[in-house]
Amino acid sequence: MMTKTREQKTEECCPKFHPEKWDNKTFNWNNKPFIKASVPTFFHIPYPPMIGKQLTRMMKMAENSKMITANKEDVLVLFSDPHPFKSEILLSVNGSVHDATNTTLTGTFMSKVFDGNYNAIPKFIKEMDAHLESKKQEG
């Protein structure tokens, strides 16, 4: 979060993340609406300024279409890494957004929160795989 002096307006780059809303949760979605965009990566490593620019553009499009939730802390941003040189960003919306790539997700999704450096992602993937496998044994 970026703040300025009292006389200047306070700007917020993105809502505060509340891990308890997402850790060890299951979500059942039926055509949950999102808008989709992509950003360049270099061997799966994102270039942070490009992510910020793309998210800002996506948020403005959703706000202009009045399809973003009023409580910004309920906005969900998902990343997919289908290619070494491209990541996809999904931003949750309330309906179709004009001039955006609109898509939906349907299914049962389980989430778990991990905190650490980017180079720890392979370890987190293994932990998530083990977590999902344990849930399959319980269900």
Rank of each mutant, 00 (worst) to 15 (best):
A70G: 09
M61V: 00
K66H: 12
F109G: 08
Y118N: 00
K72C: 01
N64V: 02
T103M: 15
G116Y: 02
V113L: 03
M59K: 15
N64A: 11
A100C: 08
D81Q: 09
I68V: 10
S87W: 15
D74G: 05
F124W: 13
V97N: 04
V97S: 02
T103L: 14
E73C: 08
N94E: 15
F85I: 05
M58P: 07
V97R: 07
F124Y: 10
N71L: 02
S96A: 10
F79N: 08
T103I: 13
V113H: 03
L105Q: 10
E127F: 03
E127S: 11
I121Q: 03
I89C: 10
F109S: 04
S92M: 04
T101G: 01
T69L: 09
K66L: 11
E88A: 02
S65W: 09
D115T: 13
V113Y: 02
P82K: 04
G95H: 05
V77L: 03
K60M: 13
V77C: 11
K72R: 14
E63G: 04
V77H: 08
E63W: 05
F109Q: 02
Y118E: 01
G107H: 09
L91A: 05
F109Y: 15
A100D: 10
D74I: 01
M61C: 06
S111T: 15
N64H: 13
L76P: 00
I68Y: 01
V113W: 04
T104G: 09
K72F: 14
D99R: 12
S80Q: 12
T101L: 07
L76F: 10
S96I: 12
A70F: 13
E73T: 13
H98A: 11
S96H: 12
T108F: 05
L91K: 07
Y118R: 01
A120L: 11
K112N: 05
M110E: 14
D74C: 03
N64F: 14
K72S: 13
A62M: 07
K112W: 06
G107N: 10
V113M: 06
K123M: 12
S65R: 02
S111Q: 04
M110G: 09
I121V: 10
K60T: 14
M58Q: 11
V75P: 00
S92P: 07
V93S: 03
A100E: 13
N64M: 13
V93Y: 08
K72D: 11
V77M: 05
V75M: 13
T108K: 14
G116K: 00
Y118Q: 01
E73P: 00
D99C: 08
E73M: 05
F79H: 06
I68D: 03
T101I: 13
F114S: 01
V75T: 12
T106K: 09
K60G: 01
V93L: 08
N64K: 15
A62L: 04
N117I: 03
I125C: 11
F85R: 11
L78M: 11
A62H: 03
G95K: 02
T108V: 15
G107A: 07
A100T: 09
L90Y: 15
P82G: 07
P122H: 04
I125R: 12
V75R: 08
F109P: 02
N64P: 00
G95S: 04
N119D: 12
V97E: 01
